[in-house]
Amino acid sequence: MGKFDNFLFFTCISILFLCILLTFSFFTPKKASDSENMVFIGKLDDKEIKEKTLSLIKPGDVILTKPKSLYDYYQYNKKVKGYSRNGFSNLFFYNLFDKILISSMGDTYWHTGIYIGDGIIDSLYLRNIEETFDNTIEHKYFKVLGVKTSDKNKSLAMERAKEHYRNQDVYYSLKNGLIIVFLESTGANWNLDIREDELVCSSYVALLYREINFDDKPFTYITPVNIEFSDLTETKFLVNETGFYMKK
C-alpha cells in the first residue's frame, strides 16, 4: 500500500478503536440494585398467571416487561403483527438492544405500559399506541408497580391514555430513544429539545402521569429505570423465570 493508503488505513483503524472505546464509555453495563422484600407465591402456569394478575392489578398501575430470553424474544416478535425477523437479525437486535442499550441503564425492563382496566394495557410501541394484555404478560417476565398518587391523577392518566389511543397523536422516536438512553447511561444533564409528541414507551407513561415527576427531570427524558426506581412507585408483584412473587 502507498503512503496515502497507509495514512487512510491507520486513520480508519483509529476511528474503529475510538468507536469501540466510546461505546464502552457511553453504554457501560450497569447493575440495578433491587433489594425489595418479595414473597414467593409459586411457579404458576400461563392461565394462573393471567388470572392472578387480573385479580391483583388495578387501573392506573404501571407494568414493566422484558423478554426473559433470546428465544422468548424471537417467539414474541413472531406473534406481534408486522414483525417477521429471521433468526440472525433477531440475534443481532436482541443483543444490540439488551446487551448494549438496556444494560447501560441497569439490567432492567425493556417496555413500559399503563393498565387502564378491563384487561387492557395501553403503551407506546414502535409503530403506534396499542392496547394489549396477553402480549405483555406472555413474556412471563414482568413487574407491576403501583403509583403513589391521588385517584384523580390516576383517572386523568387513564383518560389521556384512551384519548391518545383514539387519536394516535404520540409517535415512537428512535432518535429521542437513543438520546435518553445515552443521557441516562452517562448521567449527563443536557438541555435538549425533545418534542412532547415524539417519545418512547417510558416517557409516554410519564406523559400520561404528567402531574407527577418520576424523576428530577422533564417527562420527555424518563426511562424505564427512572419509573422502576422512582420514590413515587412501589412494586406490587412480579413474575420472572423462577415464579410469581408478591410484595411483603
Binding site: 407506546l124 410501541y125 414502535l126 409503530r127 403506534n128 399506541i129 394516535q168 409517535y171 415512537y172 422516536s173 428512535l174 432518535k175 429521542n176 437513543l178 438520546i179 445515552f182 435538549l192 429539545d193 425533545i194 415524539e198
Partner: peptide, 24 residues
C-alpha cells in the same frame, strides 16, 4: 435508523436537521 418514527400504523422516515439528530 434515527430518522424513523412511528406513524400510528407504520414506521416513516422523517429527516430532521437539528442538533438532536446529529447527536443521535
Amino acid at each position: 435508523i434515527v430518522s424513523f418514527r412511528g406513524s400510528g400504523r407504520d414506521l416513516l422516515f422523517f429527516f430532521e436537521n437539528d442538533k438532536e439528530f446529529v447527536l443521535a
